[in-house]
Amino acid sequence: MHLSPDEIIFWQFGVIKLNATIVYTWGIMLVLALGSKLITRKLSMDMKRSRWQNLLEIVVTAIEKQIEEVGLGEPRKYLGFLGTLFLFVATANLGTVLPGYEPPTGSLSTTVALALCVLVAVPLFGILEQGIGGYLKTYVEPTVIMLPFNIISEVSRTLALAVRLFGNMMSGVMIIGILLTITPFIFPIVMTVLGLLTGMVQAYIFSILAAVYIAAATCTPKPEPTNS
């Protein structure tokens, strides 16, 4: 019994090692990239199109719409980052139905990596949108006193992102593993189905929270009403 797929090491050379997290991540990358390549190889521009193209169009437009609903005015600018976050996490979580599969999102290293990406991306998009001065100004609003709290909030929510996803996925895998040993037939299947739902919800939560953070960083604050 192991807590993280990081512990399954296939090859190691010094600090460089090839563990299950990295290998399964490559697998997911291969599936996503190759599937996209194969489907988008011959896209139809007409009204008649293939089922796979329809599926991808639904997925992409749904993500785009969701980003827009969060409050980001130009969703296509953030589609590459937020869409990849959702698709990666969702694919990694849905893979749990495969026997012998260890979801990379069950590794705290992966979730920390993703949270760090969000941590970097939020100020990056904020600076691109408002300029460096405008973005840094948001840390001292409404008063300078809020500066340390804002910084702590930034770090803590990144940590929360990482730990939430890791905890949910790790616990799901652990519960299924424990149930397999206790009641091998019915409950593991039910818990697997529940795990699929939990996985999708976590993917949604992770990407939506990232979108909200970016939206908070990029949106120009509305001018306060003046007292006449």
Partner: peptide, 24 residues
């Protein structure tokens, strides 16, 4: 692994942008 996954994510983001979002 954190570094490798970060790199993997960035590569995946580029790949998907190249093969999924843009064509679609």
């Amino acid at each position: 692994t954190v570094g490798a996954q970060t790199l993997n994510f960035l590569v995946l983001a580029w790949l998907l942008k190249r093969f999924l979002y843009q064509p679609i």
